[in-house]
Amino acid sequence: MIYGAMKFSLGGSLKIAFRPWVEGLENVPARGPAILASNHLSFSDSFFLPAVLDRKVTFIAKAEYFTAPGIKGKLTAAFFKGVGQLPVDRSGGRGAGEAAIRAGIQVVESGGLFGIYPEGTRSPDGRLYRGKPGGLARVALATGAPVIPVAMIDTEKIQPPGQVVPKLMRPGIRIGEPLDFSRYQGMDGDRFILRSVTDEVMYEIMKLSGQEYVDIYATAAKRQIAEEAKRKAEEAKKKGTERSGG
């Protein structure tokens, strides 16, 4: 009931305000389990995709979104619950990852749509990064559910990292044909198969999105960008000190 009301109000508002275009909507099954594997450009990705679907799609969200104190915290928790987000404590390293995988398997085995970002985090520069094999592939191989590749288009221009108020422009969503990995079901302990499945999905996302592919993890790219920014700041500070004669 809460999800339906939230989807009607939020989804309707998003579609009216941003008018997202969609290709391949027929590739999402009307019923039954499936995994939606998407690139990740913006915080708003988890809202635009559900807004254009007739079915509920469940994403994993940080538990902190559901436990923040005060009125703002309660409103945030209600919002995330209302749009189908599933709270998982991701602060505990490997244990957190296992919790997310179990949650995804539970959603799929109950016949639902499970949404996941194989890159593990938002792209820092709009390019597509290497998928992490621990989540997507393990849920797919544990359940035998089809994997549907999804490409979000231009959402990073609407709400770049750190920008609170989104820019009104038209994003796009391309949904590819389902990928069947049921032949590998039960082989989720084989790291070579996990890597192969993940790479196949990322290749399909790349074709749908048109993004440049980078064969490193997005988390590593973010560290490199942060380190480079720090280095440049230190150089600028040093030059400023030298000019002032300090």
Rank of each mutant, 00 (worst) to 15 (best):
V28T: 06
K81S: 12
I175R: 09
E23M: 10
Q224P: 00
I101G: 00
K157T: 02
F43H: 14
L25R: 15
V88E: 02
K157C: 03
G210D: 12
E177T: 15
V147H: 09
M152K: 00
I173K: 04
T143Y: 09
E200D: 14
L41T: 12
L53R: 09
E200P: 02
A51H: 03
L86P: 07
E235C: 05
L49T: 01
E156Y: 11
H40N: 14
I175A: 05
A63V: 10
G95L: 08
M6D: 03
G4E: 12
G73C: 08
R170T: 15
F79Q: 06
I105F: 02
P29K: 05
P166R: 00
P146K: 04
F181E: 15
G84L: 05
R55L: 12
E228G: 04
Y117W: 04
G120A: 09
I225Y: 11
K207P: 06
G32A: 04
G135N: 02
A100T: 12
M152I: 06
A77F: 02
E212Y: 08
P124C: 08
R122S: 06
P133L: 04
I101L: 09
S42M: 08
G84V: 06
E64D: 15
M187K: 13
R183A: 15
R130C: 00
G144T: 13
V88P: 04
G112N: 01
I173G: 08
G4I: 02
G131L: 09
P149G: 06
K239R: 15
K7P: 01
Y65D: 00
G176D: 13
K239Q: 15
T121S: 05
G134V: 00
Q85T: 05
V201H: 06
F181A: 12
V150F: 03
K167L: 12
A233M: 10
E227C: 03
P166G: 06
Y129D: 11
L49Y: 06
A221I: 00
E26D: 11
T143D: 11
K7R: 14
G210N: 11
